[in-house]
Design a binder for these strands. Structure first.
Lengths: 207, 207
DNA sequence: GCGGAATTTGGAACAAACACCCATGCGTGC
DNA sequence: GCACGCATGGGTGTTTGTTCCAAATTCCGC
């Protein structure tokens, strides 16, 4: 398990916060509590690993609002919603918005803990992937327009000769661009370059 | 919209089936109704485009059971669950299992129709992808064990020489296998082969 | 055992890619 | 103007991959 994974708890009810904190810390996990969505947002920065335990009904920004706000910001922190007075429509809406779980109070401690562990595993699994994707995207951003163009055609399967014809330049020029692409992308092989291209493209593909 | 997309309705209540059928056919969509999960399974074959409207509570196999059964079979038909007496836990369970929506009776016609249209779009979007994936998986299944092994190393980025060392055979042998892999997979380029490998691997990766 | 598929290996010629070297022209910014 | 990055392209040689060819071995099923 990720050693600096933290369970972030946002709930306006002091007693609930304390009780959740005790329960979760007893399993050896780090916990940070906040009494409002704004307090959490003021403290959280992307890159913090963990998961988010969120009360649905709170003064100010509600749990669902915070959830969609984080999603818009591109934060990937897994969200578990907790509610005292939930209904089916609310639960479905939250799950559609990407919540990992939607738990009604009162709940069984084991159910919540199981959900938290799943969320942490989910976060860890996606975090490495996202990091790699960001890294690769950064390298692509460093390519010149022409190099970017050549990389696209190379990863599409065209040979240097075909690319030269497509771009209306000599094969020699394509070779030069291609070599620079391999170097800048730190790709050891064409296969690796194709993998990189697909990795960053996979994000764009998810509507 | 897909012209042969069909809305499959499974509900043990005759009146409900008829009412849903009228509602949906009025929008110009094809509908087929079944009075039980078994009746649906006896008639449905994968490849049929559309979506599935499923009553949760039915004699015999329940809607949730049919949903997980289809999932196990690898069928990707989008599922919309409908229930008269649902609770939050049931809705969350269904959504976790991949249902696109979970609707309580009584519902607004527009809500159901919106959900159906989303499901049909979802189905169409994923169907082409899944078809391609199945096609590629079929070709891979036709590879001999050795060819499969060589393909794995090739798409990993190893050169023929490296593969030869890995497998303990001559580079010449690897060339022969590689050529047969390209032919059997109908890949025009290494990039295409890598794409194929990643396409089928992406499914296995989704735990 | 015999036929066939799978695996193995080699030769020769060719195409493609890579790795160096080099040079020129064109903007942008200091 | 001059330096720098960018795009362009030529030469030369090596490495790698492809495409023909042919052939030996093993193992499985009929």
């Amino acid at each position: 398990m990720n050693t600096d994974a933290t369970v972030f708890i946002v709930d306006d009810d002091q007693a609930m916060r304390t009780s959740l904190q005790w329960l979760i810390e007893a399993t050896g996990l780090a916990v940070q509590t906040y009494e409002s969505a704004d307090a959490f947002l003021a403290s959280y920065y992307p890159g913090r690993a963990g998961c988010l335990l969120l009360d649905v009904r709170m003064p100010g920004m509600s749990g669902l609002e915070l959830q969609s706000h984080l999603k818009r910001q591109g934060y990937r922190l897994p969200v578990i919603l907790i509610t005292g007075h939930g209904d089916v429509a609310m639960a479905v809406k939250a799950m559609k918005a990407g919540a990992l779980d939607f738990i009604e109070k009162p709940f069984h401690d084991e159910d919540l803990l199981r959900s938290i562990h799943y969320a942490l595993a989910f976060d860890q699994k996606h975090r490495a992937h996202d990091l790699a994707r960001t890294e690769i995207a950064g390298r692509i951003a460093d390519l010149t327009p022409r190099e970017h163009e050549v990389m696209a055609l190379v990863t599409e399967g065209q040979s240097n000769k075909e690319i030269a014809a497509t771009l209306g330049v000599s094969a020699k020029t394509v070779e030069a661009h291609r070599a620079r692409v391999m170097e800048k992308m730190r790709a050891e092989s064409l296969a690796e370059l194709v993998r990189m291209a697909l990795l960053v493209a996979s994000e764009t593909a998810l509507s």
